[in-house]
Design a protein around this nucleic acid. Structure first.
Length: 889
RNA sequence: GGGCGAUUGGCGCAGUGGCUAGCGCACCGGCUUUACACGCCGUUGGUCGGGGGUUCGAAUCCCUCAUCGCCCACCA
């Protein structure tokens, strides 16, 4: 740190140290090093989409992971932070398909064929796949890049197929024609979790049907989907409904299609809500989940009238066939009206399921798909309920438990090409499930691929070499922490837990930290269309990665959404600069680095800052244990800025600019001790600048050279002071009282300047009347902190009238100036304080006069109240005296 | 329809029965004080969403209402 710039310049520093860490294998986990003394710590990254770019959500999520990883290294653990990317089935395929269509390469994927399309996607992946990884490095992420995985890697693919085969053999996977959520745009089935319910402004159509057996009797039906009438195969009513009981078992005429007006049985079903609409439901088993079940119970057939891409087919009749489902709705309503069957239409708000990716209404559809019965359900549910696995914030465990209690089979096949092919082969009626195609001619592999999450759920162990019992797997599984968003608690977290138990016989991670959602400062979700989503790389360029990390962490309380404001990053930048300059100041004082601290020469301020440091270590360490990162940054911010810089460093100046070399050397030693600890406490949050300063100040000298040199990355995490340490340096409680009183006096003394309207730079004379024995050092420091020309200690000082006075337990401070005081303003100020004190006194007097209070309150509270009252009365006396001084001035 | 969360000075948050309700930002006033104007010093500002209850004592516990947000749910 020969030439230290006045302001911290992050760019060069960041690149330099990241390369250094990588070159020295600082991020590489070695299972061989794991031992009882060196426990393993592991965390797997939630793999970002391979073609994605870094956004603020990634910043939040990965900063937290990096904090945990770096803290664990400093705790002396062998750390594996395992990175990777996800191939993101539908998302990636749609992006590439759109691009190819735009470029005129194809109009539809069928033109190109499976292999050619996959080639294009791989090409795209190679081109854009590395971006996000490089961006994570910019953020400072200390991942073990030598273990980078991709969900479409050959080995990973093997794992996915192996799992499928295993589940198939266990009888947990089956194929069946069932109702699934069908996306008419992506032409694939979706799991329930991929369907988003949205409220829609729809219409409720009322129409009538004639009862066959009772001419003249009509049933009124309310529906939102008249276009599916041709697919109706029954009419259902509630058996308890007195209006319709006698009609059960009879038939009604289905009005559409006009060329085939079938007779439908009127059936009873408890599911029907008597209150809703007319209490009569048209049953369309092929196009509604509930209707499908009613149809099954009633034993009626299912007639499909809508095609895979959402159009009406021939069975819908001449009037509707070929129309899009939404056009058909209008056409069907019009037809009913024409027939005189439409009674009325009402505006109606209902919830409609949308495809998460394609954002079009899904179509419940009868389709041949693969389904999975979740394995290891009970264990997975129990481990969270009984606390073996902990969720932070804890409340998500309720959500988890609720979902685990209502598991439905999972539709895992997708009619896409980009993904893991289902390892099943067919030949005529024959079916074979296995990793390889069976011997012989004519076998055709199932064309479908597996749901994205059906691969992601193996992430914690499939990335570690499973099914081989690799050292990595042995030492680092189960992982320690998982950091993810609560939006994928079902998609991913729950399924990983089940997979972990099923194939490893153990939970996949011990703690799950759920981040909040990043929003803008107005609380809106970040989105491209709103343009409120800042580019993290730009922020890093402008403020530095440390600033971004610190700012984000500082505003991300556990369990709440993060209202992100660029101001936070600016604050992080300012903070780094403050840290930089404090170290720069140290550097300017010269002297030996990290000298021995001599207990005999410690000043009250030295002891005080050591005590504050001890407190900060405790707070930050506790905050880490509770995953409360805002608390950690808050404690550090306060300690470093308010306590260390504002008070300690300022008080050091009395010594640094004085002429007591022994004391100066000692203060420097304390400074280095505190700074060395402070840098380490900051390192997980501010990896770059702390490393730069660690080296710059020479604190790395005593570090063991066994790993990547003398980096702060592996410096030991500070420990709270032991008793013998406190005794050795005489860090007893009385220090706080002394120094607090001193600070109070100084603040009050500075205030006297404001009263006298004297600029801080102007050297002035103060007189102090100490309350007790006064150490010359204290006089020196107070003088320095007040920027006083002189500070005369005078036990017997009797101030003249009109003298502004400041006081604390330390003593009284006078500013003997004439004509500079706005007496009335000062009287008002003191009067205000007096009012406050009077209220306080009244409150405590009231309390202490209350018999119940005195009898029932715990002794220490009673004592506190008495002390407090006495203090207030004394203060009142002082204030009154101050008023006296002013009077007559 | 169920469940969860939030409601504390202008903004964002801390504070889960007991000292004077804290912090950051913003605001206001003053400072080119030789680490830092990405800074320093000093102020101002809150009857803790409303109501009720328990208690010697409530921001904190209970009940209730309100507003906002999220999740779950097959009323067509």
């Amino acid at each position: 740190m020969a030439e230290i710039p006045k302001a911290y310049e992050p760019q060069a520093v960041e690149d330099k140290w990241y390369s250094f860490w990588e070159e020295n294998d600082c991020f590489t986990a070695d299972p061989e090093r794991v031992s009882e003394q060196r426990p393993a710590y592991s965390i797997v990254i939630p793999p970002p989409n391979v073609t994605g770019v870094l956004h603020m959500g990634h910043v939040l999520n990965n900063t937290i992971q990096d904090l945990l990883a770096r803290k664990a290294r400093m705790d002396g653990k062998e750390v594996l932070w395992l990175p990777g990317t996800d191939h993101a089935g539908i998302a990636t395929q749609s992006v590439v398909e759109r691009k190819l269509i735009k470029e005129g390469v194809m109009r539809h994927r069928d033109e190109l064929g499976r292999d050619a399309l996959l080639e294009h996607i791989w090409e795209w992946k190679e081109k854009h796949g590395g971006i996000i990884i490089e961006q994570l490095k910019k953020l400072g992420a200390s991942c073990d890049w030598s273990r980078l995985r991709f969900t479409m890697d050959e080995e990973y693919t093997k794992c996915v197929q192996r799992v499928f085969v295993d589940l198939y053999e266990k009888g947990l996977i089956y194929r069946g024609k069932r109702m699934v959520n069908w996306c008419p745009k992506s032409l694939t089935a979706l799991s329930d979790e991929e369907v988003i319910m949205k409220e829609q402004n729809s219409q409720l159509f009322y129409f009538k049907v004639q009862v066959v057996e009772e001419p003249g009797t009509w049933l009124e039906i309310a529906t939102t989907r008249p276009e599916t009438i041709p697919g109706d195969t029954a009419i259902a009513v509630n058996p308890k409904d007195p209006r319709y009981g006698k009609l059960i078992g009879k038939h009604a005429v289905r009005p559409l299609p006009v060329e085939n007006q079938a007779h439908l049985p009127i059936v009873a079903d408890d599911h029907i809500d008597i209150e809703f609409g007319t209490g009569v439901l048209k049953v369309t088993p092929a196009h509604d989940k509930a209707d499908f079940e009613i149809g099954q119970r009633a034993g009626v057939e299912a007639i499909e009238v809508i095609t895979a891409d959402g159009k009406m087919n021939e069975l819908a009749g001449a009037d509707l066939a070929g129309l899009d489902r939404f056009e058909a709705r209008k056409a069907a309503a019009a037809k009913l009206e024409e027939m005189g069957a439409l009674l009325k239409t009402e505006d109606y708000k209902n919830n409609v399921g949308f495809s998460e990716r394609a954002d079009v209404p899904i179509e419940p559809r009868l389709s041949e798909q693969w389904f999975l019965k979740y394995p290891s359900q009970q264990q997975s549910r129990d481990c969270v309920a009984n606390g073996d696995m902990k969720f932070y914030p804890e409340r998500w465990s309720k959500t988890y438990d609720y979902w685990m209690g209502g598991l439905q089979d999972w539709c895992i096949s997708r009619q896409l090409w980009w993904g893991h092919r289902i390892p099943v082969w067919y030949r005529g009626e024959e079916i074979h499930c296995g990793l390889e195609a069976p011997e012989g001619e004519g076998w055709e592999q199932d064309p479908d691929v597996l749901d994205t999450w059906c691969r992601s759920w193996l992430w914690p162990f499939a990335t570690m070499g499973w099914p081989e019992e690799t050292n990595t797997l042995k030492k680092f599984y189960p992982t320690t922490d998982l950091v993810t968003g609560p939006d994928i608690i079902f998609f991913w977290v729950a399924r990983m837990i089940m997979a972990g138990y099923e194939w490893r016989g153990d939970l996949p991670f011990r703690n799950v930290y759920f981040t909040g959602i990043i929003r803008d400062k107005k609380g809106r979700k970040m989105s491209k269309s709103l343009g409120n989503s800042p580019d993290p790389l730009e922020l890093i360029g402008q403020y530095g990665a440390d600033a971004l990390r610190f700012g984000t962490m500082r505003s991300a309380p556990q369990g709440l959404d993060v209202l992100f404001d660029e101001k936070d990053v600016e604050l992080g930048r300012n903070f780094c600069n403050k840290l930089w300059n404090a170290c720069r100041f140290r550097q300017m004082q010269g002297g030996e680095t990290e000298g021995e601290i001599n207990p005999a020469l410690l000043t009250s301020d030295d002891k005080w800052i050591l005590r504050r440091l001890d407190q900060a270590i405790r707070e930050v360490t506790a905050a880490f244990e509770a995953y409360r990162f805002t608390d950690a940054t808050g404690a550090l911010y306060r300690f470093f800025w308010s306590e260390f810089c504002d008070w300690y460093v300022e008080s050091c100046k009395a010594t640094f600019f004085g002429n007591d070399p022994a004391r100066k050397a000692n203060v420097l030693a304390v400074f280095d001790f505190v700074m060395g600890h402070t840098l380490r406490l900051f390192h997980p949050f501010l990896p770059f600048i702390t490393e730069e300063l660690w080296y710059g100040l020479g604190y790395s000298q005593d570090m063991p050279d066994d790993q990547g040199g003398k980096t702060i990355m592996t410096a030991h995490w500070p420990k709270a002071f032991e008793d013998d340490f406190r005794e050795h340096y005489a860090l007893d409680d009385s220090i706080d009282d002394l120094v607090d009183a001193k600070h109070e006096l100084v603040t009050a003394g500075r205030n006297l300047r404001a009263i006298g309207n004297i600029p801080y730079a102007k050297k002035i004379d103060y007189i102090i009347k100490p309350a007790g024995q006064l150490d010359p050092y204290e006089v020196e420091v107070i003088k320095s902190l007040l920027n006083a020309e002189s500070l005369t200690a005078d036990v017997d000082h009797a101030p003249r009238k009109g003298t502004p006075t400041a006081r604390s337990a330390f003593g009284e401070l006078y500013l003997p100036l004439d004509g500079l005081v706005d007496v009335e303003a000062e009287k008002g100020r003191i009067g205000k304080q007096l009012d406050k004190i009077e209220k306080e006194i009244a409150k405590y007097e009231g309390k202490l006069e209350n018999k119940d209070y005195v009898e029932k309150v715990p002794p220490h509270v009673l004592e506190d109240a008495k002390t407090r009252l006495a203090d207030c009365r004394e203060k009142r006396g002082q204030l009154q005296q101050a008023l006296d001084y002013l009077a007559g001035a």
